[in-house]
């Protein structure tokens, strides 16, 4: 499924969608940025509660299809601005990380 299709599910909301047609190939959950860079795969939906601007740099390098901020976390202002510049998709959800992963997995 594409990031836009994930964002269309009622549990998710797109807050930055510069590349909505990007295909989601899998998923990864984690908040430790080095761990994410070492383990996440290209095309993953990356579920995290980290909202600071460094998640954009990590995404630019690890190249997930989108960031999914779980637990009702909103991105910092800098984060949104940088994500728009770098073409990084960001969704939000009020689901906790486990339930967000389950929902994404069932939709894939």
């Amino acid at each position: 499924m594409t990031v836009r299709e994930l964002a269309a599910l009622p549990e998710f909301e797109a807050v930055c969608l510069p590349d909505g047609e990007r295909e989601i190939l899998g998923g990864y959950a984690g908040d430790l940025l080095s761990w994410v860079m070492g383990r996440a795969s290209e095309g993953d939906a990356w579920v995290t509660i980290m909202s600071n601007v460094n998640i954009v740099a990590v995404s630019t390098l690890a190249d997930p299809a989108c960031i999914v901020l779980s637990e009702g976390v909103a991105p910092d202002g800098d984060t949104l601005e940088r994500a728009k510049e770098q073409g990084i998709n960001i969704l939000t959800t009020s689901l906790d990380t486990f339930d967000a992963c389950v929902r994404i997995a069932s939709a894939l």
Partner: peptide, 12 residues
Amino acid sequence: SLGFGAGMGLPN
């Protein structure tokens, strides 16, 4: 608190 300091930098 920013998500760094996991002790994975040099190993990565």
